[in-house]
Write a protein that binds this DNA or RNA. Structure first.
Lengths: 157, 157
DNA sequence: GGCTGATGGTTACAATTGAAACTATTTCGA
DNA sequence: TCGAAATAGTTTCAATTGTAACCATCAGCC
């Protein structure tokens, strides 16, 4: 006796569906980290991203920050406003193109960065302890390739 | 001559920070999928999750749905309300415990499921084409272990 | 039976977010 | 050099979301 035909939908179990599982993992991780940023420094994740990128690359404009943080320009604008208000950021404007801002950390912003960065890296290290060194390298590659592929797929429509 | 001491913060580049990269990947994937659900069926991701789980396990209560979809009960409540309004869900109440709802798909809800499930699985298949079969198995394991570890870490504070 | 606390689910309100419109400045082409 | 289109960034308004409070029912205990 033949087994019944197995259609595609037979296999859609949320708990095995990669996009769903990625989303669950990311949410747990993001909420943990966001909790720390918020509790200890009163920072949101967008603000933290702006700080992190400006610590590395000072004097970027808002759109450049947006590109490097995968945020849209409205999100950057709002994060920048809050960081200016909390005196963690300094803003000047480009002499040659007065639309462009030049953003950099204030000493207070640097200080926040120096205190958060180790926490963030500590969280990551502890998370990745669940994997062997070779698995960590594999994870790197998999995230890379999946992101690239997801971008292609998103671009082609 | 010794190399300069390498402090933890030296290495915090957003583009290598796993939580950030996971978040970027998940956002691209979720937005692609959400776009399809929304365009073609007027469904949000929470609504889709409720449909998916009820297609597999009919007659769950709202809290049971919440557990299986990693959503909180407010999100489930709102998704259920919208699905009831669009006549894709039927709700009765448990005879023995009148607080508990019993949720199941209406024929229209089933029909939506039968049309979306192949699209969702098609997206996943195409995404995973970026990986070899053995890499796919590895990805499965890595997501599993990272999620478990992230949960432990979140629980221990 | 009648409290007390837990559970299922909804509602209310504030905070966050997203999309579109807007201002200011610059660039490009006729 | 003038006007149209592009770019940087902000604002506005509506929709979504998160938190807490809330109502109803139930379970345990006296």
């Amino acid at each position: 006796m033949k087994a019944p035909a197995r259609t595609a939908t037979d296999r859609l179990h949320l708990e095995h569906f990669v996009p769903y599982r990625l989303s669950v993992l990311t949410n747990i991780v993001s909420m943990s980290i966001a909790g720390t940023y918020e509790r200890e420094f009163g920072l949101t994740i967008p603000e933290w991203r702006v700080i992190a990128v400006l610590a590395r690359y000072p004097n970027l404009s808002a759109v450049e920050v947006a590109q490097r943080t995968a945020m849209d320009k409205v999100a950057v604008s709002r994060a920048v406003q809050r960081l200016l208000a909390s005196r963690r950021l300094l803003r000047t404007y480009d002499a040659g193109d007065r639309r462009r801002s030049r953003l950099r950390l204030s000493p207070a912003g640097e200080a926040v960065y120096m205190r958060i960065a180790p926490l963030a890296l500590g969280y990551e290290r502890k998370l990745l302890e669940a994997l062997s060194p070779s698995e960590r390298r594999t994870l790197d590659r998999l995230i890379e390739r999946l992101t690239e592929r997801a971008r292609e797929m998103a671009a082609s429509d």
